[in-house]
């Protein structure tokens, strides 16, 4: 993107207004543009970094939540199974009406009573 007309116009405006320094580096405008591009790049880099960090945190939270939920479900299932087993045992012990009946009738132990 080279257009010398703007630089020439700049010189004309400087001379017309008697507003110019003793000398100006010919690479001044290139240096300014380099600076601007660097600034834009660093802004983009910061933005990308922010996005990366935010994504990492998000996935960490989701994973942690998933693991905790899974663990809770697992322990609930185990607990429920245990309760179920205990209930069955209790039921088998408490619900002995058929055994009593059989014992009374025959005095024998029924397999159901074991």
């Amino acid at each position: 993107m080279k257009n010398k007309n703007y630089s020439v116009l700049g010189k004309i405006l400087g001379i017309l207004n008697n507003d110019f320094p003793p000398y100006v580096s010919k690479t001044f405008s290139d240096n300014v543009m380099k600076n601007i591009h660097m600034n834009i790049d660093s802004k983009n880099f910061n933005y990308k970094n922010f996005i990366n960090i935010a994504a990492s945190v998000f996935f960490a939270i989701v994973t942690a939540y998933g693991l905790i939920s899974f663990q809770q479900t697992e322990s609930n299932i185990i607990a429920q199974e245990n309760i179920q087993k205990e209930n069955d045992l209790i039921k088998r012990v408490t619900d002995d009406s058929s055994c009593i009946k059989l014992e009374n009738q025959e005095g024998k132990q029924n397999d159901e009573c074991k």
Binding site: Y6, V24, I40
Partner: peptide, 26 residues
């Protein structure tokens, strides 16, 4: 962004001179 260079080239002399009046050092 590259269009901005036109503005820089157009006003660089006057702006550097304004700064020069304050800094006294080119």
């Amino acid at each position: 962004t590259d269009s901005y260079k036109y503005l820089v080239e157009k006003y660089q002399f006057r702006i550097i001179n304004t700064c020069y009046k304050y800094t006294k050092n080119i």
